[in-house]
Amino acid sequence: MRIAYDRAACQGHNRCYLLAPELFDVDDEGYAILLVTGEVPPELDDKAQLAVDNCPEYAIELREV
């Protein structure tokens, strides 16, 4: 799965950081930082899906490779 994060849509809800800290960090202002580029390690697919499904701003996208 490929993951994409839209910094312009992010409002710092921090749901992704709570649910998938392996994939997301946060900066000093609380906006998300995507820790992987492109492909999600397969063992983190479920966590990536959780991050997508809980982002209130629809700022994260997951696509089949």
Binding site: H13, D53, N54, P56, E57, Y58
Partner: peptide, 15 residues
């Protein structure tokens, strides 16, 4: 609940 895009904290720039 695992899918929960709630807006209890608002949406947009005033989150």
């Amino acid at each position: 609940r695992e899918r929960n895009r709630h807006s209890a904290f608002g949406l947009g720039i005033h989150r």
